[in-house]
Amino acid sequence: MKTEYLAGSYSVFDIAGPVMVGPSSSHTAGAARLGKMARVLAHNSVRSVVFQLYGSFAKTYKGHGTDKALLAGILGFDPWDERLRDSFRIAGESGVDYSFQPMEGSAGEGTGWESVHPNTVRFLITTHGGEKFDVVGCSIGGGKVRIVGLNGISVQFTGESPILVTRHLDSPGIIASIASLLYQSRLNIGNMRVSRKRHSDTADMYLEIDGSVPKSIVEQIQELPGMLSVVLLQPEE
């Protein structure tokens, strides 16, 4: 496309912006963003959460308010929401249990993701229905974040393209049905990971989609026989 004006890699509002609650884009704003993503992945239903903190998060979380920001995200607050600094009190009032565990070393072992950034948090979430979710995310600088682990699957969600996360019965045909629904909307799957849980005969699947996914597709996937849950994570506006 021929453009009339010179443009750089940054938007004006990357430079004059974003609006955020301080003090640190990576340790506060990024942490809140990760918390909110984890909440969405857990169907917006968090009864309790354990935050395991790694690297710089483990060392400096109190000073930067990373703990308050992570919890605020879990409560559904955005990085610019001033309620962020009161998240401990608000979580207490809304009956969300939480604890913080600074961890030693790397977060990689036995969790299904390969390399881990110094600012890493693992969310161990239990929903109101008693379902468990295990989400690992990194704050990679300037408030940008990446989800790298999801229920033991290694993923790469940066908020740039949408991802679909399903939990379904581990039986033949389900994955083909999902793929066929996506194909009907001419949606391409950019990346795909599956992890099976033998003890419960269920599988968790992660799909990265090129292009925007309409809500109707999510509903149709939800209706598939053997489908337990579907979450669509959209890029942020």
Partner: peptide, 21 residues
């Protein structure tokens, strides 16, 4: 100081330098 107190600021270009512009 508002930034360090977990108040709302505009990162411009960063949170650490948010007071200058």
């Amino acid at each position: 100081e508002v930034n360090a107190a977990m108040g709302k600021i505009v990162a411009c270009p960063t949170a650490g330098s948010c007071g200058i512009v």
